[in-house]
Nucleic acid binder design. Structure first.
Lengths: 184, 184
DNA sequence: GTAAAGTGTCTCATATCTGTGACATTTCGA
DNA sequence: TCGAAATGTCACAGATATGAGACACTTTAC
């Protein structure tokens, strides 16, 4: 029964991703659990949020790292890491969202920010390689591409939620939109 | 002094776009106004939210309609309406977000939903024309493109908030990413 | 079958959010 | 400068969210 904690975290990521200040009752409902049970696993809102971030960073960092190591070719790495990011779904986009809030001051000194930076270190590094090689469209920046990437993940998630498009088809479309959109 | 109401609406769109359940105090702060003043203009949260949606739909519908009428060429219309959507910024994306929440049941019967549909009627209609003409990538759907469009607007907004990219450059990049991403 | 662990239900105290009244202060136009 | 409109300050009641205790019920492991 110890995956209750995990399912609450998953639910929280889903809910908070759409509504940062949503009442905890919504999270509990999504996890099919009582609010009382939620509080047994997480002292308060902050602790739950922290666990969410930890979970997200772990999952994304592992997925990205695995994808990175499947090949040494930067172009192939891009594609592998793109699909890995897609599969992280809302974990990916939620983490990104937290660090692009308009009142969020990003600073490497902050531990959470530096962990965020580290999560996408390999990904951004590989982008930089492709940029300097001239493989991608001139005028692109690493930040633009990274934001663009996150946005495409959102599109993918939406299409999956609506269920009108199969997962493989959506993955293909996503890669098409992303790769062409950065000038490959 | 009657633009206080307008500035509160703008603030609300900015805040609610990031945090749907944010306390009204945050909106008031963003608008550099007291919560008491906010309540003088808006009876309650719901009324404020409604005014936001009305404002958004008006602005987006006008912008889209104007762009539509600048030309009769579907390909040129696409570009004109794309830029119009960009300029609507977070108004555009917030409206879209409200209608893609995972627990939102979209139904034409609902007045707000039908107004939403109407706002993007011309835009989607034009997309359909381009699709049947075979101008765009096969396998694309109107919904995918529309979601993709909304996502690119988010990327554009983020880049403007960070201020690292000039507006004209960002607009060009956005159009590049969007047009290539749908197979033009 | 039994004990232990996990959950649900009910309850309650506290905190935060919300909406409004009363009145002071500021702003702006005549 | 004067008066009206707009806004701020403070104070308050009601609503909602939060976190935890007490105890019953269910599930799981042995």
């Amino acid at each position: 029964m110890k995956d209750t904690e995990q399912s609450i975290i998953e639910a929280a990521i889903l809910i908070f991703n759409e509504d940062l200040s949503a009442p905890l009752e919504k999270v509990a409902d999504q996890a099919q659990v009582t609010r009382r049970t939620l509080h047994r696993y997480f002292k308060d809102r902050k602790e739950l949020m922290d666990k969410c971030q930890k979970e997200i960073r772990k999952a994304c960092a592992i997925a990205m790292s695995n994808a990175y190591n499947t090949t040494e070719n930067p172009r192939e790495r891009l594609e592998a890491m793109f699909y890995a990011g897609l599969d992280c779904g809302s974990k990916n986009t939620f983490l990104h969202k937290l660090h692009t809030l308009h009142d969020h001051k990003h600073q490497a000194a902050n531990e959470e920010c530096s962990e965020y930076d580290h999560t996408f270190e390999l990904w951004k590094g590989n982008l930089q390689v492709l940029l300097t090689k001239g493989v991608l469209n001139q005028g692109m920046t690493v930040d633009w591409i990274h934001n663009f990437f996150q946005s495409v993940v959102v599109v993918f998630i939406n299409s999956q939620q609506k269920g009108v498009l199969g997962r493989p088809e959506a993955r293909e479309l996503a890669w098409f939109s992303f790769s062409k959109g950065i000038g490959i």
